[in-house]
């Protein structure tokens, strides 16, 4: 052990980050034209950003409390449905070709989605998860049960059929840059995703709250011994993560232009792949993993549509062979 003079400088692990451009460049020779590649890359990044929003809460909750919430997907679907109710009620201002009118519908929809998903998260933490702390088996079972029940309740409240959800006028359509058609909505998704990531990064690295969260992910007991109630912290993170998943749900529903009760469950599979790739509990890993998965899905979706999800499983296996605990392994094993 070295003590005395200089320590080795803390090296940020750039390698996993380099995977993102590496995958994008590796896809380039296979895709016939540059504009198509640009379109696909933007689509992949947009998809990745949305996945990141949905997954961020899941990974933080796991890191902080060692809880894997298999029902996290319901926050996505509940958010999507809540927003749909608001947007369909405000149809007129959705269809108006004015940004202000569109925003007047979208802002309340997003707020409703986040509020409802956050509230559901709070309820879930209190009623479903709290009694099974420390017992992984029961956690998985109980949260699966929660998933079933909420999915069924969605059917009761919103009906079993798929609800079409047209995008507001101002963010429909696409524009051309250098021959590449880029959908406006995708650009919006990338911007929102970046904003969310930046906000999370700032909170985690520049505030006392973030310091507490990062410390809690490493060593819960020690944070308690320093006089902080980790429970309170955890409930807050859980609610925020659920609300974020709700936001992701709205974005995803508008992207798909429809909602159905299964989206939560369908997304869970993708979220798990992202978490495993990124390293359980790591927010940075979650971000990188989400972008990788989004890009991969779009390139292979174009080249060999049948293999889209399969390619991500392959990506996951390769990452695990390279780094068995994910790209950015987190403290506790």
């Amino acid at each position: 052990m070295s003590h005395g003079s200089a320590l080795p400088a803390q090296r940020f692990d750039w390698l996993p980050l380099a995977l993102i451009p590496a995958i994008a460049l590796a896809a380039l020779p296979f895709i016939p034209s540059l504009p198509t590649w640009v379109t696909l890359t933007v689509a992949g990044l947009a998809m990745g950003m949305m996945i990141f929003m949905m997954a961020a809460g899941l990974t933080l909750v796991f890191g902080l409390m060692d809880i894997m919430n298999f029902a996290h997907g319901v926050f996505i679907s509940v958010g999507a449905y809540a927003a749909t109710s608001v947007l369909l009620a405000m149809k007129a201002s959705m269809q108006a070709d004015s940004l202000a009118a569109n925003l007047a519908a979208i802002v309340p929809a997003v707020l409703a989605a986040m509020a409802l998903a956050g509230f559901l998260g709070w309820f879930f933490e209190r009623v479903v998860i709290r009694p099974v702390y420390g017992d992984h088996l029961k956690q998985i079972l109980v949260t699966m049960g929660g998933l079933i029940v909420v999915e069924q309740l969605i059917h009761v409240v919103w009906g079993p059929d798929i609800i079409p959800l047209p995008r507001p006028a101002t963010i429909t359509g696409s524009f051309i840059v250098g021959g590449a058609a880029i959908e406006r909505y995708r650009v919006l998704a990338v911007l929102v995703g970046l904003a969310v990531f930046a906000a999370m990064w700032l909170i985690l690295n520049r505030t006392r709250l973030g310091l507490l969260i990062r410390a809690g992910v490493e060593n819960r007991e020690m944070v308690e011994s320093l006089g902080y109630r980790i429970r309170t912290l955890f409930v807050g993170v859980f609610i925020a993560g659920s609300a974020l998943a709700g936001l992701g749900g709205v974005m995803w529903a508008l992207y798909q232009e429809s909602v159905n009760a299964q989206i939560g469950m369908q997304m869970m599979v993708v979220l798990f792949i992202v978490l495993i790739i990124g390293g359980l509990g790591s927010v940075g890993g979650c971000f990188v993993g989400a972008l990788l998965v989004g890009l991969m899905a779009n390139y292979t979706g174009y080249l060999a549509p049948k293999l889209a999800l399969g390619s991500n499983i392959l990506l996951m296996v390769l990452v695990l062979l390279w780094r068995p605990r994910g790209l950015f392994p987190v403290g506790r094993g």
């Binding site: 894997m68 956690q139 998985i140 798990f272 792949i273 495993i276």
Partner: peptide, 9 residues
């Protein structure tokens, strides 16, 4: 948990 997630995928 890892096993559960991998098998799901």
């Amino acid at each position: 948990i890892f096993f559960a997630m991998i098998t799901l995928a």
